[in-house]
């Protein structure tokens, strides 16, 4: 039961981002996931600074050129580094970031089940 749950969570987790949408929606979605570098913690979508406005145009142009969402992220990461991406990718730097909460969740569950529910007097 527990295994099934875990598997389910992961399935959901990795399927979640596959939203199909037209270019306009895709553009909004991408710009929401980009950090406006000259702002204080705003996304490109939320900002109307010169930089953000240009970046919106760039994303639109790239989409019209047939770039995929992933390719646009890669392109911008190459230009500006990982700082621009709001969705940190899973790599050696971010294993802890992504997996520690889930690990804590499992540990917490184990403690609850072990010490409160399945102990017999």
């Amino acid at each position: 039961m527990n295994y099934l749950k875990v598997i389910f969570f992961f399935l959901v987790l990795f399927n979640f981002n596959e939203l199909k949408a037209d270019n306009e929606n895709l553009k909004n979605q991408i710009t929401k996931n980009l950090r406006c570098l000259i702002c204080q913690g705003q996304s490109v979508y939320d900002s109307d600074s010169e930089f953000a406005n240009s970046l919106k145009v760039v994303v639109e142009e790239k989409l019209n050129d047939g770039f995929s969402e992933e390719q646009i992220y890669l392109f911008l990461k190459d230009k500006y580094g990982e700082w621009i991406l709001y969705d940190p990718e899973l790599n050696i730097n971010t294993y802890i970031l992504w997996l520690l909460p889930i690990l804590l969740f499992l540990i917490g569950g184990a403690i609850i089940f072990k010490s409160f529910i399945f102990t017999k007097k």
Partner: peptide, 13 residues
């Protein structure tokens, strides 16, 4: 005109 070339260069201002 649109600021897109500057982004190609990796500039932000």
């Amino acid at each position: 005109e649109t600021g897109t070339k500057a982004i190609e260069w990796g500039a932000f201002g």
